[in-house]
Design a protein around this nucleic acid. Structure first.
Lengths: 411, 411
DNA sequence: ACTATTTTTTTGAGGCTCGAAAAAAAGCCT
DNA sequence: AGGCTTTTTTTCGAGCCTCAAAAAAATAGT
């Protein structure tokens, strides 16, 4: 159960601290690193000398913009872009994209592709994913040997060890152990990440001020997903990627959800649910996929005049509000980011959402709960996958010969 | 944010490991400790020599029952009961109890008292608590100087730092910083713990097989409370003690809850809610406290014949089931312990609960979810407080002069 | 040119854990 | 009884790691 700390773990961990401090801060000096890590200057000096010698960090003397101060000028440390590279794969509805990112976080190659995920058989779906990755890895412009990690992101449920896709709305196929498949094919360590978790990871990197230790990313799209960060750590369920906010029960025995059950939050707030409600289709009708353009048109109509469209968004807001209220009852209120096509219609959703949340125990200070919106989820997922893969590399390069311990660290 | 590991932290942490290994295992030999902690024999030998020399551990050669084996016999290590003592205070409805526990976990003194918590003014309530603690501390039979920690448990909401009671159903008084008050009065470090969290801590010690890394303790009493352990750690909200399972929304706009809102799980499953429903009282009626005897009588009547009483328990089960389903959607299913007077009526609750949970996403494998019942919550709360205080002491004695870091470790 | 200031590196000391070997404490066997 | 085997515990030297203090480096101000 509880494991003691070995003497050699100490250096490994402190190396990790230094690398992650550099990744977070951009171009910190040794002195800055010493301040943020709490380690002594001598330790930081020794470790960074090692890391520079190993080609993981570089001294970037180009730190011109620093204010002219007395004393010996600080030397900024930066990640060496050539130290490694990672590859991200994002599989979403009818769309597959990969990117190669250098160790400093810059995209150095990209490829995207349309495909009919909903009707593709299992082997073909896996084959397309492998093929696009192989094309990128075999690109002559790229030093193949340097790709140290693959992170794949997908909408749906993954297992809590980030190894396999268990279920996804974008395909009828279930239980694909993508991480194992990728590792076997390319002999590169890989993980299979949940899309909403990656959104949360990306938000944390984009705006660490706002999204620090506790926050929630909610995907408002065909389905409703959630990525949750608690105490600075990505929260996953005990078995699965967890956080199935969209399938909390809003009204027992209520509207039919895509998951086959009744009364889930998603059955009121997913795109299909809003559409169904706006069009006067029965709540018992089977969910259908609505295109983004249709949803935008629906939102426009709802803004134009009061009517069933506006009412549909109101009901979505109510479901989300009561759901958030229940969630906040469990974890206390936290900042929320609304992501996805329906986040662009958040103006239509927010009033009813706030009204509902105010009726719950978790919403006691509902006015202080702040929402942010981001209509486009794909870039976030890609960024999240990239950062996750890079932070994994951070923990492998500095740890030569460590015993594999479940990498549950923050990304 | 992220702090490096100092060189001296190393020994401190490994001392902690050894102490907690002994506390968990009872009388482990040095070899056993080395195995569970992963540290080398020499390290364990050095640390335990220190701890014995400091009077924290003792060698217990009385380990007769060990099977006769070849080789040098193992020497069991045990906690020295006289190394320290802790004091627990449990304040519940109309009832106040304290206990003094030695370092090995044995109760060495107790006192209990009835008092009208519902009508006592603030000062009197605090005064009674201080008085009973003072009596125990001044007991001539007790070595006062050795009480190293006080843990107080109370039903209701506490802050996430375990310093203050924010709100409790047992008194109209709010926001009592009990931890500070006790510390100022007795100059002994103190914490203010939530009752359900302590139930969870106690269950973990009572049955580590079943309640290990992920489980849920639910209090079925006047109100509905929850203690949640995730990944081996007690889960609290970000601001408050959190886990307000009873105030998740079951039916938006539904029955009146004690918290003043509508539709909470508690408004269907709390004692008053079951009573209200069984007696045909309106769902809008103000909640009233029902005695345990009345509840037992109600359960007996419900078992006797089908009628409004049985229906009331059915509805409670439904509310709990949908609530658990929503909870499981977020954290994945885990073992559940039902505690409190209504846990004795769990036979009446379980069928509807299972039926409801099966209709939720979190209840996919509802048959595999297991429930355990324990009708009496007070002993659990006391045990939990004791173990929490003792593990705090474990981390103070071994850490002479450590920088205070939020003790968020498991108890 | 010289001093003040700040950052970085070097150096020596002290601690910690580890592995190997030794010591200790039994039971087993002849 | 005495030697042998087995297992646990202790001892000891080696190798690291971090820290504090001193030295070195680099620049601004005078």
């Amino acid at each position: 159960m509880s494991v003691g700390i070995r003497h050699d773990d100490l250096r490994r961990r402190n190396r990790a601290m230094v690398i992650s401090a550099v990744r977070r801060a951009g171009q910190p000096s040794r002195t800055e690193i010493a301040a943020t890590t709490g380690l002594s200057h001598s330790t930081i000096s020794a470790i960074s000398a090692d890391l520079i010698q190993e080609g993981i960090l570089t001294e970037s003397k180009a730190s011109e913009p620093t204010a002219l101060k007395r004393g010996r000028p600080q030397i900024g440390l930066a990640l060496n872009p050539e130290a490694a590279a990672v590859l991200t794969v994002v599989l979403s509805l009818n769309f597959l994209s990969v990117a190669v990112i250098d160790y400093a976080g810059q995209v150095i190659a990209e490829e995207q592709q349309r495909l009919d995920t909903l009707v593709m058989p299992r082997d073909e779906l896996i084959g397309e994913c492998l093929a696009i990755v192989r094309r990128r890895l075999q690109d002559p412009d790229l030093d193949v040997g340097s790709v140290a990690r693959i992170a794949m992101g997908i909408q749906g449920i993954t297992d809590s060890h980030a190894r396999a896709m268990l279920w996804s709305p974008i395909t009828p196929v279930t239980d694909i152990p993508f991480a194992d498949i990728l590792e076997r094919e390319f002999e590169i360590p890989a993980t299979m990440e949940n899309d909403c978790n990656m959104m949360a990871v990306a938000l944390r990197w984009r705006d660490p001020e706002r999204y620090r230790d506790n926050f929630i990313a909610i995907l408002l799209s065909h389905g409703i997903g959630m990525g949750l960060v608690l105490k600075g750590e990505l929260f996953t369920g005990t078995h699965s990627s967890g956080g199935e906010f969209g399938h909390m029960i809003h009204r027992p025995g209520g509207a039919l959800c895509r998951c086959g059950r009744r009364g889930c939050v998603e059955a009121y707030a997913g795109n299909y649910a809003i559409w169904r409600s706006a069009m006067g289709i029965s709540e018992d009708a089977a969910p259908i996929d609505i295109g983004d353009a249709d949803m935008r048109a629906l939102a426009a109509k709802a803004r134009e005049k009061d009517g069933p469209e506006r009412e549909a968004y109101r009901r979505a807001g109510e479901a989300l509000g009561f759901g958030l209220g229940s969630l906040f009852a469990l974890i206390d209120p936290a900042p929320v980011a609304m992501v996805g096509v329906s986040a662009a219609a958040f103006d239509l959703i927010e009033p009813a959402l706030r009204e509902a949340i105010a009726q719950t125990a978790g919403g006691q200070h509902s006015n202080s709960i702040s929402f942010d919106t981001e209509p486009n989820e794909l870039p976030l997922i890609r960024e999240g996958c990239a950062m996750r893969a890079l932070t994994f590399v951070d923990q492998e390069i500095f740890a030569p010969g460590m015993q594999a311990r479940a990498g549950k660290d923050v990304a």
